[in-house]
Design a protein around this nucleic acid. Structure first.
Length: 274
DNA sequence: CTGAGATCCTGGGGGC
DNA sequence: TGCCCCCAGGATCTCA
């Protein structure tokens, strides 16, 4: 699932590939996944690609721009000489929902099996980003232990639901939440307000650590994620507990179990997560 | 106000 | 081989 490390990986690559490119036209194959008038993008020049939480932000030279969310199975892939024809054919297959044609002749593919993701045209991108930021909490690197603890103390919700709440902390998804909670030795079902200062500090440090590890490995390609070059990341090879039902806890050896928290699968060691 | 649950969607996998 | 059902989960919506 594209979470912060996956989206950031795509952002870096997309920025490296498409800044300076001018949009020639947009081919929308799935109406619901493109919000706005595709024809209006002709002539827009891309100047910057940024990110807010799990949202990709594509700036144009004008005040306009795009907000992209990959949701669960979205992929953004840029046509480059490194991507072989066979791979492009694959991306062009039935799950390609939008194709952005660039004046240089290259293409940006928006591929999404489950069609939860979207590209939205914003006539005033900065205003749209400002509104988006109001709904997003800080990224895990940008919050103090004290401020994090303060947020936890305010709610009786399960700690896992709280760290997945984008208005509290932006960028964490199910994979990194499960691994960070294991790393910090905290049971995902714990009431958030019950965490001690020490536990909150440890959890925040664990979240930062797993996200950094995700970034360093190019993200998790557990099922459908690939980067902007169509390549898999490798964080899935270092999952701590995510989707490891029945395997041994790396810390205490007890069998890991899957529990459901907030309707989501969560992997936990009931021996060393309290 | 909070928090829980449904919803959008398709494909993969297990059971029989 | 085929069919059914469960599962995957980010954000948004409804409802208690």
């Amino acid at each position: 699932m594209p979470e912060l490390p996956e989206v950031e990986t795509v952002r870096r690559q997309l920025e490296a590939e498409v800044v300076g490119e001018v949009i020639e036209g947009v081919e929308v194959r799935k109406e619901k996944m493109f919000v706005g008038d595709p024809a209006s993008l002709k002539g827009e020049k891309i100047t910057r690609v940024a990110r807010a939480g799990k949202y990709l932000l594509v700036y144009f030279e004008s005040s306009r721009g795009l907000i992209i969310h990959l949701k669960m199975t979205g992929r953004i892939v840029v046509e480059t000489s490194e991507i072989r024809k066979s791979e492009l054919d694959y991306f062009m297959a039935k799950h390609t929902r939008v194709v952005i044609n660039l004046a240089s002749g290259r293409k940006i593919f928006f591929w999404d099996t489950r069609m939860f993701g979207y590209i939205r045209v914003e006539n005033n991108l900065q205003d749209a980003i400002d509104n988006l930021q109001k709904k997003l909490g800080p990224e895990p690197w940008g919050i103090s232990d004290t401020a994090f603890l303060g947020k936890l103390k305010k709610t009786k919700r399960a700690i896992k639901n709280v760290i997945l709440d984008q208005s509290i902390l932006a960028g964490v998804g199910n994979i990194y939440a499960s691994d960070a909670l294991w790393s910090a030795g905290i049971d995902p079902r714990r009431e958030a307000s019950s965490l001690s200062r020490q536990e909150a500090k440890k959890l925040l440090a664990s979240i930062v650590r797993v996200l950094d590890r995700g970034l360093a490995t190019g993200g998790a390609s557990d099922n459908s994620y690939v980067d902007a070059y169509g390549q898999k990341g490798s964080y899935q090879n270092e999952f701590l507990v995510y989707r490891k039902t029945g395997e041994q806890c790396p810390r205490c050896g007890r069998e890991l179990v899957r529990v459901v928290v907030g309707g989501r699968g969560s992997w936990v060691c009931e021996g060393c997560q309290r």
